[in-house]
Simulated assay, not measured.
Amino acid sequence: MLTPKQHELLTFIHNRLEDAGVSPSFEEMKEALDLRSKSGIHRLINALEERGFIRRLPNRARALEVMKLPEGLERARKAAALLAAPAAPPKVSAPAVPIAANDVIDIPLHGRIAAGVPIEAMEGQNMLSVPAALLGSGEHYALEVSGDSMMEAGILDGDFALIQRTEVARDGQIVVALIDDAEATLKYFHKDGRRVRLDPANSAYESQVYDAQHVRIQGKLAGLLRRYN
């Protein structure tokens, strides 16, 4: 069973595709559902996709396609189609529903994170507009990179690291590691028994080794956004 907002969004997308032949933009969906930011729309679309009601085609900039409708809405659609149908032989197949690209979403920008010596993170609550194609499923936030210890991984001072929230990571992934619940850093993650090693991507810096109980994973790198002034 869908939540009221999920049902409302699915109906809006379906009606727009039926009427105009194109999917609504994130901005149009936000306004239709009276939400404050497009991040709420992103979460609703993820939920609908996970439950099989819509899908986003790869390499199509987040193109949307309605796969199925809730039972009540589907019955109403079929009844309306029968009433409106002319006295003619049924079509062998219906044309495919056109799919349109959507634009950007807003994710929380939580301040600066060190790519060198750990510094305090999560210090702000601004929003950052991000191309939806850079993000996958799950909840995301952004951190501004401070330092150059990850430069050999292509992560430079002033970049915006796009982070997928998670508390677990595999060896070799780039993560946001929170140390002693006070300071955070962006590093390669390695687990060695009861110890955690955080590796830089710059030969000028040394690895940081901590007891595992002093380190918590706050997310893993999902993408990178760079501005050129």
Results as ranks from 00 to 15, higher is better:
124 G>Q: 15
192 D>L: 13
217 I>A: 03
188 Y>D: 00
207 S>D: 05
68 K>A: 10
167 E>W: 11
126 N>M: 13
61 A>N: 15
48 L>I: 05
168 V>N: 12
115 A>H: 02
86 P>A: 04
160 F>Q: 05
2 L>Q: 05
183 E>N: 07
12 F>E: 09
37 S>H: 15
121 A>S: 09
54 I>Q: 02
229 N>A: 14
121 A>I: 11
207 S>H: 09
105 I>C: 06
140 H>P: 02
26 F>Q: 05
56 R>I: 13
175 V>S: 02
90 P>W: 06
213 Q>V: 12
223 G>L: 14
183 E>H: 08
204 A>M: 09
21 G>M: 08
133 A>K: 14
187 K>M: 03
201 A>H: 03
161 A>N: 01
19 D>G: 06
27 E>H: 14
130 V>I: 14
160 F>P: 00
70 P>T: 07
118 P>M: 03
188 Y>C: 01
46 N>P: 04
105 I>W: 00
12 F>T: 08
114 A>R: 04
65 E>G: 00
182 A>T: 09
11 T>W: 13
113 I>G: 00
81 A>Y: 14
99 I>F: 09
65 E>L: 11
142 A>F: 03
31 E>V: 10
183 E>D: 07
94 A>M: 06
201 A>N: 02
160 F>W: 11
177 A>L: 07
116 G>K: 07
45 I>Q: 03
166 T>C: 08
34 D>P: 07
133 A>T: 11
25 S>H: 09
188 Y>W: 10
17 L>F: 03
34 D>I: 12
7 H>L: 15
134 L>M: 09
49 E>W: 07
176 V>R: 00
142 A>S: 06
66 V>Q: 02
196 V>E: 00
101 A>R: 14
119 I>N: 01
5 K>W: 14
49 E>N: 06
143 L>H: 00
179 I>K: 02
40 G>V: 10
4 P>I: 12
35 L>D: 04
39 S>A: 12
26 F>M: 15
227 R>Q: 13
71 E>Y: 08
177 A>V: 05
77 R>L: 11
73 L>Y: 08
202 N>H: 03
203 S>P: 11
222 A>F: 06
108 P>G: 00
93 S>D: 09
144 E>F: 05
56 R>T: 13
80 A>I: 09
148 D>G: 00
121 A>E: 02
155 I>K: 03
26 F>D: 06
137 S>W: 08
45 I>T: 11
84 A>Y: 04
1 M>A: 14
139 E>H: 10
154 G>R: 04
175 V>L: 04
210 Y>R: 01
42 H>W: 15
193 G>E: 01
100 A>L: 14
205 Y>C: 00
217 I>N: 04
176 V>I: 14
162 L>D: 02
112 R>G: 01
215 V>K: 06
6 Q>P: 09
3 T>Q: 14
216 R>E: 12
49 E>D: 11
142 A>K: 01
18 E>N: 13
76 A>W: 11
7 H>W: 13
190 H>L: 08
20 A>E: 15
